[in-house]
């Protein structure tokens, strides 16, 4: 636990960077993510992981799971919540604010320009459509890559396998509102712990805490 705490205090990628530099990187990277990751949602969170955990090492290596858990249970857009999470971890409240500005700026600028009538969108253009297909394929790849990395840590144990299947099937085939599934999963998790069933899954949980 001690080792983990020190890591959280001082993630490797942050040492040696000036505060101004950290704030700039937060702003600029979230600006890029918001601009190029079409659609938002989970893809935004995973793109933030790609940049801030895997490339810059600003967060602990296994922090993706904590990040996802918080981002999707707190009300708000995933893009915004991801920016606040990373920004706060890297540079406190100001960092969160700066990252959030980076996320909102592209939408704000582009939509305002469209609303003012400055640009019209060539949506029917065959090249534009093709580019969208290309980007969506890449975002599919981004999600699969992240899944492959977190799969072992989540699917192990009875509870994990059960919750994964229920959530996937519920969302895909029955269009259940994800919020209900998340609340259900939280409740089940709490009950699992209070009843003591988690001892069955102990191996799974200690691993979880190491990641």
């Amino acid at each position: 636990m001690n080792e983990m705490d020190t890591l959280r205090e001082d993630p490797p990628g942050l040492s040696g960077l000036s505060r101004g530099r950290i704030l700039w990187l937060l702003f600029f990277n979230f600006l890029k993510i918001a601009t190029f990751v079409l659609g938002g949602g989970y893809a935004i969170v995973l793109a933030a992981e790609n940049i801030f955990i895997r490339k810059l090492h600003w967060l602990r290596d296994g922090e993706l799971m904590d990040m996802l858990a918080i981002i999707q249970t707190i009300p708000g857009l995933m893009a915004g919540n991801a920016a606040i999470y990373v920004g706060y971890r890297a540079a406190g409240r100001l960092g969160a604010l700066v990252a959030l500005t980076g996320v909102a700026l592209p939408s704000f600028t582009i939509i305002t320009l469209i609303s003012l009538g400055f640009s019209h969108l060539p949506m029917e253009n065959v090249y534009v459509q093709g580019a969208f297909i290309g980007v969506r394929s890449a975002l599919g790849g981004l999600t699969l890559a992240a899944l492959l990395r977190i799969w072992k840590k989540t699917v192990r144990g009875y509870l994990g396998a059960l919750i994964i299947s229920v959530c996937f099937i519920g969302v895909t085939f029955f269009a259940v509102n994800p919020a209900w599934l998340l609340f259900g999963a939280m409740g089940t998790g709490i009950a699992w712990f209070l009843i003591g069933c988690h001892r069955l899954d102990m191996r799974n949980l200690t691993e979880d805490h190491k990641i």
Binding site: L147, W151, I163, C167, F168, L181, A185
Partner: peptide, 20 residues
């Protein structure tokens, strides 16, 4: 810990759905 151990696999399920 209970909340987290419930949400982690739920997340994986949702990400799988979003990949699809």
């Amino acid at each position: 810990q209970g909340i987290m151990s419930g949400i982690r696999p739920a997340t994986a399920g949702m990400i799988l759905a979003s990949m699809l």
